[in-house]
């Protein structure tokens, strides 16, 4: 700019002051940055998206109100460190970990497994970097089949494992015969890693998956494990955290008294 300003008027190739002013003109027509130029696959956020958000906010406010008016959550007796309820249970979203606690060393169940789970989940996008299948639920038909397969496989294996440990009992059978590290740590780790590998190998053999689809199998295994263990821990663990096959709501509340 400074260069232009210093240039004497009427110099070769230059523009006289008079002419320069005349260069400023209003150009009618579209500017490049009009916010209202919609491409074919685009919609305005107002109203299209904002309406959906407002509606779902209204619906869920209503549902919350109805639930809050209909059912009061428990407020049992005042905290008493000298009276231990049986069973004592963690909040429901940690009951999966409390369920694991019944089958392995507390350091594994309470800390190492959940930490590993979170770290592995966070690492997913650094392992699966191909943009293939973005934006498509389950990526492909094969992805859907793998999800269902993995869910059924995980459910069956988990229920079988819990039943086995509850009826026969790894700790019960082995304690006194081998070092505790075997049944508290080695066997549980072997079982968890082993069945993940079995799931991976089975899915690889049956479906010839891409890396993304293999990760779908493993992630589904995690989600279903979380779900099954939470359900078992919440509804099927009663007095002394023994398996109990009837509805235990009363138990939860009695236990707290």
């Amino acid at each position: 700019m400074a260069d232009v300003a210093r240039r004497p008027a009427g110099a070769a190739g230059g523009i006289s002051d008079e002419k320069r002013q005349r260069l400023l003109e209003l150009v009618r027509g579209r500017t490049a940055a009009r916010p209202t130029d919609l491409a074919e696959d685009e919609v305005m956020v107002w109203p299209t998206l904002v309406v959906v958000e407002a509606l779902s906010a209204v619906i869920f406010t209503f549902l919350l109100l109805v639930a809050s008016i209909a059912v009061n959550p428990p407020l049992v007796d005042i905290a008493n460190p000298t009276v231990t309820p049986n069973p004592s249970k963690a909040p429901w979203y940690f009951l999966n970990l409390q369920e694991l606690l019944l089958h392995m060393h507390p350091a594994l169940a309470g800390v190492i497994v959940p930490t590993m789970a979170l770290v592995l989940i966070a690492a997913i996008p650094f392992v699966d970097r191909s943009p293939l299948g973005v934006g498509i639920l389950f990526t492909s038909d094969k992805g859907k089949k793998i999800t269902v397969f993995s869910a059924i496989f995980t459910t069956i294996v988990l229920i079988a494992l819990i039943a086995f440990d509850s009826e026969i009992g790894v700790t019960r059978s082995l304690s006194g015969k081998v070092a505790p590290v075997v049944y508290e740590q080695l066997i549980p780790v072997a079982v968890m890693v082993g069945f993940s590998v079995v799931l991976g190998v089975l899915v690889s053999k049956i479906y010839r998956p891409t890396r993304r689809e293999l990760i779908i199998a493993l992630f589904t295994g995690f989600v279903v494990s979380y779900f099954v263990l939470t359900i078992v821990g919440t509804f099927f663990r009663g007095y002394g955290m023994e398996i109990q096959l009837y509805w235990p709501w009363t138990n939860l509340h009695e236990g707290a008294h």
Partner: peptide, 9 residues
């Protein structure tokens, strides 16, 4: 809430 449920959980 400081009730038994809270304390023992």
């Amino acid at each position: 809430p400081w009730d038994q449920l809270a304390f023992w959980a």
